[in-house]
Design a binder for these strands. Structure first.
Lengths: 137, 137
DNA sequence: TGTAATCTCTATAGTCGCTATAGGTTCAAG
DNA sequence: CTTGAACCTATAGCGACTATAGAGATTACA
């Protein structure tokens, strides 16, 4: 039996976050000690690690909840889990593409700075005038 | 004189967002019509476009507020504006690097799916077992 | 002038995924 | 038995909006 602090230390998920996951229905409410403190079965380690792993990969709690449902029923088709992963992958790829455009734009803006006064500052000028941009954003 | 709806249409910033920016102190409270509706000078177009442009580049409202302060005082050194842009640039670059690692991992996970049942699903297995991952995240 | 459609007003609550705080209780070690 | 750490609940805050409700203003047209 683990206290919430031990569970936290072993999974790297902070204590208030574990309680938050419980409230959100991602982990089952555990048994309590006589003094009303949470006591977890070792099994909780696996489930919480699953959640943390998904979060580290950037999945939403909603997506993770869906995957937990799936994982609990090994007979079901894998297609849904696959779909969730692929949808997330394409969201990540979109984000990368957008950030790369921003990176180009910011590099261009920052590199033109002549180091003098605001009146001549390219950063400010570029923000004031969209026409100075390389592409649409 | 522009109504808030006209200002919104011309800048692409939604009406409630304009009011939100006003409450946050990013734009000055405009004059009002007899019936208490906001009426903007054409000048507001420039300021709001500046804000929108910064947001599109991913700057925080705080950073934008700082830049507005700078822009209003053309005699000051450009160094601060340059610093803000460069700091943001390196945050963007960090984000790109992290997302690329996720992309690799997700691609790997999703591509191994055999299309059968959850019991064999690599997506679920990978989430359950960190040891299946290629790198730390 | 009337009326209808659209626009605008304020205030408040919700979004996401936590994190922080306050004020109290329980536990484990010495 | 005492101390100090860990734990409890409930609530508020973060950033940057978005949505809703219920009321009032403006505009276009007949």
């Amino acid at each position: 039996m683990l206290s919430i602090g031990q569970l936290s230390a072993r999974t790297g998920v902070k204590v208030p976050t574990i309680r938050y996951y419980e409230k959100m229905g991602l982990i089952a409410p555990p048994d309590r000690s006589v003094g009303n403190q949470r006591r977890y079965e070792p099994d909780a380690l696996r489930r919480l690690s699953f959640i943390k792993h998904g979060r580290d990969l950037g999945l939403s709690l909603e997506a993770i909840a869906e995957l937990i449902d799936l994982a609990d029923d090994p007979a079901r088709s894998c297609a849904d889990a696959d779909r969730i992963a692929r949808e997330h992958l394409s969201a990540v790829q979109d984000k990368i593409a957008r950030l790369k455009r921003l990176e180009r734009e910011l590099t261009r803006i920052a590199s033109r700075c002549t180091g003098h006064t605001i009146g001549e500052c390219y950063v400010i000028q570029a923000l004031s005038d969209h026409a100075l941009c390389d592409d649409e954003h």
